[in-house]
Design a protein around this nucleic acid. Sequence first.
DNA 1: CTGTTAGCGCATTCAA
DNA 2: TTGAATGCGCTAACAG
Lengths: 330, 330
Amino acid sequence: MTADGRATIYDIARHAKVGIATVSRVLNGSTRVAEPTRQAVRRAVDELGWRPSRAARRLAARGAERPRLVALMPLFSATFYHAVTSPLAGGLAAAGIDLAIYDVPDRETKNRLLDRVLAERACELLMLCSMRIGSERADQLRSLSLPTIFVDYAQPGFPSVSVDNRAGAALQVELLRKRGCKRIAYIGGPSEAHAFADRTEGFRAAAGPEAPVEIAEAMTVAEGRAAFIRLLARDKRIDGVACVNDVPAIGVVEEVRARRRKVPQDVQVIGYDDQPLMDVFGLSTIRQPLPEFGDWALNAIRRLAVEPVTPVASARLDLTFVERGTTRAK
Amino acid sequence: MTADGRATIYDIARHAKVGIATVSRVLNGSTRVAEPTRQAVRRAVDELGWRPSRAARRLAARGAERPRLVALMPLFSATFYHAVTSPLAGGLAAAGIDLAIYDVPDRETKNRLLDRVLAERACELLMLCSMRIGSERADQLRSLSLPTIFVDYAQPGFPSVSVDNRAGAALQVELLRKRGCKRIAYIGGPSEAHAFADRTEGFRAAAGPEAPVEIAEAMTVAEGRAAFIRLLARDKRIDGVACVNDVPAIGVVEEVRARRRKVPQDVQVIGYDDQPLMDVFGLSTIRQPLPEFGDWALNAIRRLAVEPVTPVASARLDLTFVERGTTRAK
DNA sequence: CTGTTAGCGCATTCAA
DNA sequence: TTGAATGCGCTAACAG
């Protein structure tokens, strides 16, 4: 019996009145076992509900172990995820490093997963996307000497690649102002995401405390549209909207048009991300250098895999404005 | 020394002239170690390039092992991936099952990963998305009694959830015909993807062997547009285009408009997938029940995790037509 | 503070 | 065809 109550091959050997070697043989499909014996073992396996122990098997198999990178990321954003991991996946495979991706929908999951990954020593490289950790956790990572990188959000004391979210939102405000907007509003995202919270903060700092802000609970067209409607209820004369993300920005454009007004003549809109298809929609937006996130991560990982102690320099990447049809180009 | 030439804690104990317990202590950050001793061990670790064995650690730690599902999928399609895994991720976590996702860009990678996963007994549940396996591989999975499910593509002898890709393409043809199209063309995808190959086949069967077909090498707007241009070079009078995917379909619409012709008056277009934002774009398309794929997979996995022997019924889900602005509604 | 010892669950010799 | 014994690399008592 294992610590957690599962049967071991000793249990099934005893149950089937055979030796453990025989059990191992039928389990691994060896042919050198008499049929009745095989039957007895199979039955014992079923009755005791035996499950193999991965760890024991691997250890006994004496096989080489490939280093593994565990990546924790909130998969709610498919495009973000995809843009970051696609440069990574191929490069890691070439470097002989396994990549396991875990979804982290919320903070509890994050901590639960980290607890488990660290307790089980499940990996020798760790990548944390769009999230931050506390100082106890940071100490824990260091004392375990588990090389960890942060993507999309900077964590002091660790290598990271990120952008300046506050500056990005401030840039949206500045751009709208220069294009003649007098009443600028913001559609933010749930503040559990640090990047979202930072952008909202950046907007407030740039646009002033009275500038209206509404939060879209999800990065969907419908939520964006609803948030814009709430914005209009607060101030009908809004003529510029900055969004935390491209998708809700599209909702804004839809709602403006539904009210028989024009983009960008009556209302100008700026998104954030420059996701795929945004060129087709003609959305003006702040482009995040997502593939560069992946490239940086790949390089950092490769270096860390070879020389875990070497400090890796963090990178702060530039945001650029992509002007399309939802702003009035000057 | 391990089989693959790595150092073990015995090596570093000898090197540092201490016992293995002391080595283990400094490795695990225990405080009850004298500083000089700690230094010596650290140095030995660095010099010998020691890396921990996950398997040995886990085995010695006597911790409970959570069952693990390994999912192999081609991540080139972010939306597909996301739609399928998002119902899965939460449900598996709740069921106490770990999910590790591996990217499979091509066939070699698929076989390499499968070889490794099977050799290492890396999981007790396996999910193969958008791919097929040969009969030797199938036998191997069965003899290892590794419960395996197939998503997006049916594999005889295994539980699977899929749609009828041939029928989907045939449906596109039928819909275009009923809406008055006389010259129907197809934009397919790389035939390495079985689902793509099937759709092309379904189109050919329904539209006849002379109906023009061009392949878009990637599911992008630009590739779709280029394929449509090639199509027009073959037959200028094309008045209906069926696409293997929504994104290239958008390229078709763009090109039609660039030529000062109208969708759907002059050319009707039907996509495939019903990806996010397609409603905003107004694309008529064949909807794939992607979230249902994920739901089915979750249920299948849960059942298999409890009772690996139980046969699970495969499901073939329905495709539906979502009519929007790129076809002439009747 | 440190070393010795005994397993963890399994695969695999080697004899029988 | 089968079983007893050994060891995979590590952690965690237990002594010293």
